[in-house]
């Protein structure tokens, strides 16, 4: 019965939404890249860099939204490196992505050590505080669960709307989707596949970095080395689970976060006394693999994902 009590508490769902927020940013970022035809395995490193950049910028004196912007720009820059190598040069997206994750992660740790040489515990910042939305936050259950979050969480949900609208309702979105499905058709329209894909990778990477920044600026108020801890890889699984659609990916992220919040609470119940805590910590990763297996038969993959486009080649 403990399970029922957990699942019906507003605090549980508030935690689930909070846990989902960084995943939503990064999943949308990855989704943008993949819809344009580029698998971005730099996501893990970009999230680390974003988490650090936003936090250190605020620590250095910028306002919170300034920190978010810095994180976004760092993401765009790293996305730029990825896109130059993977789009016009058409290098293996696997190798470029893993290489970028290694580069971004080590560069972040290096910068941390250079900027804060002698600290044992990293400094704290004044992070985003919960923002109670007038009227809505008063609704029983839904108010505390949904409308007493931080501004960055609301931004995550707005981002899903913006990505969804842009992809399906604007010429730009059509061009991005076509670049991922049939780049030759895009080129035939006189549009540059290279420019579209590079732009998508840079903007998507910016979103991933903001997802990382959520961890240091909203979920916590400080930066730790193993903070991102595989969340980027989970987001890649979430894009597949969401069949490359923003709405479904949002649903997947919340479902996933709910399971994550659940395992944290179950650890404190009678089950947690019997089952080793490592089993609970494994759950997010196991769930991601199950999600991949469940969705494997759906043929929603962008047709030109991971296929470089070299104009003039047929």
């Amino acid at each position: 019965m403990e399970l029922f009590e957990i699942l019906t508490s507003a605090a549980f769902w508030a935690a689930a939404i909070r846990i989902a927020s960084p995943l939503i940013f990064a999943t949308m970022g990855e989704l943008i890249c993949e819809r344009a035809g580029v698998l971005n395995l730099g996501i893990e490193g970009i999230m680390v860099a974003g988490a650090f950049a936003g936090w250190i910028a605020v620590w250095a004196g910028l306002p919170l939204w300034g920190g978010v912007s810095v994180a976004f720009m760092v993401g765009v820059g790293l996305g730029g490196i990825h896109s130059i190598l993977s789009v016009p040069f058409g290098l293996s997206q696997h190798v470029v992505g893993i290489g970028l994750t290694l580069l971004a992660t080590s560069a972040t740790f290096y910068t941390y050590r250079v900027m804060l040489p002698e600290v044992s515990t990293p400094p704290k910042i004044d992070a985003f505080q919960p923002l109670h939305i007038p009227v809505l936050s008063e609704i029983p259950f839904f108010g505390p669960a949904l409308f007493q979050q931080t501004a960055l969480t609301y931004l995550a949900f707005i981002l899903v709307g913006v990505v969804s609208f842009t992809l399906y309702r604007t010429p730009l979105g059509l061009a991005v989707r076509a670049a991922g499905e049939s780049p030759a058709a895009v080129a035939a329209q006189g549009l540059s596949v290279t420019a579209i894909r590079m732009g998508a990778v840079m903007v998507g990477s910016g979103c991933m970095a903001v997802g990382g920044a959520f961890l240091t600026m909203s979920a916590f108020d400080s930066f730790f080395f193993d903070m991102v801890n595989g969340r980027g890889w989970i987001c890649i699984a979430l894009v597949v689970f969401g069949a490359w659609r923003p709405g479904k990916a949002l649903f997947g992220a919340i479902l996933f976060a709910a399971f994550d919040a659940l395992q944290i609470r179950l650890q404190q119940t009678g089950i947690g006394a019997v089952v080793p805590y490592q089993v609970f910590l494994m759950m997010p990763y196991i769930l991601s693999i199950i999600a991949l297996i469940v969705m494997s038969r759906r043929a929603a993959v962008p047709a030109a994902l991971m296929v470089p486009f070299n104009k003039g080649e047929r």
Partner: peptide
């Protein structure tokens, strides 16, 4: 006293530069 993460950066850079 230069952080040893310099090694990781060098290797990641070498990887990306080399594939290009």
């Amino acid at each position: 006293g230069v952080p040893s993460y310099l090694a990781d950066i060098m290797l990641a850079t070498a990887l990306l530069c080399m594939v290009l």
